[in-house]
């Protein structure tokens, strides 16, 4: 088994919390993992990505080779397209539909959606609205994780445990909100 995931977004959007949840869940399942992150200057509102590799065998490279990612999980629509060279022919692109506009020449949203829909396996999720319904717009990244959880080779119970672990210090209210966000995201796709 191997699960190569590219997490993408804009600096400050919280892709590292998604990575932390997947990390905890992977450890619970005794999987090998490597996760390359971006720190430093590009975190300031620039494009950021994380290569996350899960496997039942030791992982060699910290970086995913082109054309071999099973999943692009993006919290921002334009950023989801930046990593298409990495996506495998059968891989899934799962993205938030809400643009993060901090550049003057941001493309037309309609055109972006057209490009995203050209990808064979795509799932576009209005994570911001779903997160607000679940109780807080801040949980949009967990909604996205929920939507993408169908394509992660991890039991959903492990992802729930990981959320309990990550948000443990913040109390039951925050945990419940994020679990609700996870499942609301998960409901966006049926096998």
């Amino acid at each position: 088994m191997k699960n190569d995931i590219i997490l993408s977004g804009v600096g400050g959007q919280g892709i590292l919390s998604i990575a932390a949840v997947i990390g905890y869940a992977a450890v619970e399942n005794n999987l090998y993992l490597k996760q390359a992150e971006v720190h430093g200057m590009s975190q300031r509102g620039g494009d950021v990505q994380s290569h996350f590799r899960l496997s039942d065998h030791p992982v060699a490279s910290d970086l995913i080779p082109y054309g071999e990612a099973d999943l692009i999980l993006s919290v921002e629509p334009m950023e989801s397209l930046r990593y298409l060279p990495w996506l495998s022919a059968e891989g899934w692109l799962v993205t938030n539909s809400n643009p993060f506009v901090n550049i003057p020449d941001y493309p037309d949203t309609g055109e972006l959606m057209t490009e995203i829909k050209k990808v064979k396996n795509n799932l576009i999720v209005d994570a911001d609205s779903i997160a607000r319904e679940a109780g807080s717009g801040k949980a949009a990244n967990i909604v996205m994780l929920g939507a993408a959880s169908h394509f992660l080779e991890l039991p959903v119970e492990s992802i729930e445990n990981a959320i309990r672990k990550l948000f443990g210090k913040k109390g039951t209210e925050v945990i419940d909100l994020n679990l609700k966000a996870l499942h609301a995201g998960r409901d966006q796709f049926t096998n």
Binding site: V10, D47, M78, L81, R82, L84, P85, A89, I103, E115
Partner: peptide
């Protein structure tokens, strides 16, 4: 392997 090219409408997003 190589996936699909990055579509032309994707803009640079400098820090």
């Amino acid at each position: 392997l190589y996936g699909e090219e990055v579509p032309g409408i994707v803009r640079k997003r400098p820090p």
